[in-house]
Amino acid sequence: MTITRSILLFVVAALAEIGGAWLVWQGIREHRGVLWIVGGVLALGAYGFVATFQPDPSFGRILAAYGGIFVAGSLLWGVLVDGFRPDRWDVAGALVCLVGVALIMYAPRG
């Protein structure tokens, strides 16, 4: 159950951070306005709170592992929201990052 909770928290954190960055991008680069930027800033703030609910007590470990989630999630966001088509190297890199997440977060320690 702890691993499932951790993965769900990573997914929620990714949605908040990637979604927030996307909203700021839309507000500034696509000239959608201040409300988009404010929404993005709020979502980015929410990301910071979500990360604190991870069961592991190590900030460095959580943030390092989240980096891999961010990489894979960003590519997936691009596919689903922006019509981005990753090439095989994008996919391979994201898979390497996800393996890194698994090693950092869920490898047995003793």
Results as ranks from 00 to 15, higher is better:
M1V: 11
T2S: 12
I3N: 08
I3C: 00
T4D: 02
R5N: 10
R5D: 04
S6C: 02
I7C: 02
I7H: 06
L8Q: 06
L9G: 06
V12H: 03
V12N: 03
A13L: 07
A13V: 03
A14N: 11
L15R: 07
L15T: 12
L15V: 13
A16E: 01
A16W: 02
A16Y: 02
E17Q: 14
E17T: 08
I18D: 08
I18S: 13
I18Q: 11
I18N: 09
G19W: 10
G19T: 09
G20C: 05
G20E: 06
A21T: 14
A21S: 12
W22L: 06
W22C: 03
V24C: 09
V24T: 07
V24M: 07
Q26Y: 05
Q26T: 04
G27V: 12
G27M: 13
I28T: 09
R29K: 15
R29F: 15
E30S: 02
R32P: 01
R32F: 11
R32W: 10
R32Q: 14
G33R: 05
G33P: 08
G33Q: 09
V34D: 08
V34Q: 11
L35H: 10
W36D: 08
I37V: 15
V38K: 13
V38Y: 11
G39P: 12
G39R: 10
G40E: 04
G40C: 06
A43C: 11
L44K: 03
G45L: 15
G45P: 04
A46P: 01
A46T: 13
G48Q: 05
F49V: 14
F49R: 06
V50F: 14
V50D: 12
V50M: 14
P55Q: 01
P55A: 04
S58F: 06
S58D: 15
S58G: 06
S58W: 05
F59N: 09
G60F: 07
G60T: 09
R61P: 03
R61T: 14
R61N: 08
I62G: 08
I62R: 13
L63R: 12
L63F: 13
Y66M: 08
G67T: 12
G67F: 11
I69E: 03
I69A: 14
I69D: 05
I69V: 15
F70L: 15
F70T: 08
F70A: 14
F70G: 03
V71T: 15
V71C: 13
A72P: 01
A72K: 00
A72Q: 02
A72G: 00
L75P: 00
L75F: 05
W77P: 01
W77T: 01
V79L: 05
V79W: 09
V79K: 11
L80Y: 00
V81G: 04
V81N: 00
V81C: 01
D82Y: 07
D82H: 06
F84L: 04
F84E: 02
R85N: 07
R85W: 02
P86F: 05
P86I: 09
D87V: 10
R88V: 12
W89A: 13
W89Y: 10
W89M: 15
W89V: 13
W89I: 12
D90E: 09
A92P: 09
A94C: 07
A94K: 04
V96W: 02
C97F: 13
V99Q: 10
G100S: 07
V101F: 00
I104E: 03
I104M: 10
M105L: 14
M105G: 03
Y106F: 15
G110K: 12
